[in-house]
Amino acid sequence: MLEARTLRKSFGRTTALDGASVEIGEGEVVAVTGPSGSGKSTLLHCLAGIIRPEAGEVLFAGRRLDTLDEDARTRLRRENFGVVFQFGELVPELTAEENVVLPLLFGGRGRRESLEAARSWLERLDVADCAGQRPAELSGGQLQRVAVARALAAEPRVIFADEPTGALDSLAGERVMGELVGAARESRATLVVVTHDNRVAAYADREIALRDGRVVAGATAATGGTADGTPGEAAAGASAAGGVSR
């Protein structure tokens, strides 16, 4: 479903990705882990087509993503991907319901149809009571569940979540992760979660470990090791720490 081949990406003098390669299958739930600055978010942004790598290839359903122009990548993201960010990142001026409706309207659906879909998702994620409230009036957990509803409402084929529980306490985090993974499995969507929290990674079928911009473990479902099949030293370390394939 998703594949990255020897990605390289730098920000100024800082190298974020240094030859990272991964393969993610359809319906798979994958956790991308690693210490701060290891390139997790950059990998997610490359896979989601938000940024283009300087070198390497990104493929979605067998089609090159990194060579598409901005408009084509935007359309692809809108039609196939859903994104959940660390702090929810809802539009503060809109109500919870309007936040969920917005991507559907941008996707060309009618207002009534979009509202019905949004209400159904808010109900499913147990935040229907907050539909008329603005983000500032919601708790961290509610806010993140609305963000999950927004990402799932357009029924994406892949959901990207960047530290979705990073701003939540453990109880709220578990609930959000449970619902995110449950909804992804139910709709047979692929889920890619960036996290540095082992408890969050435990929800995944597989853990892709990054260090210094390189994938050191779990690059493919088949090998559970690096893309070329050689686990390497760090991979062994990541395995020992509870990483790689489950």
Binding site: T74, R77, V83
Partner: peptide, 16 residues
Amino acid sequence: RRSFAVLAASGVPVPA
């Protein structure tokens, strides 16, 4: 700008 950046990342075209 952050709200707009998030919307753009979520697939909203910049012209919109």
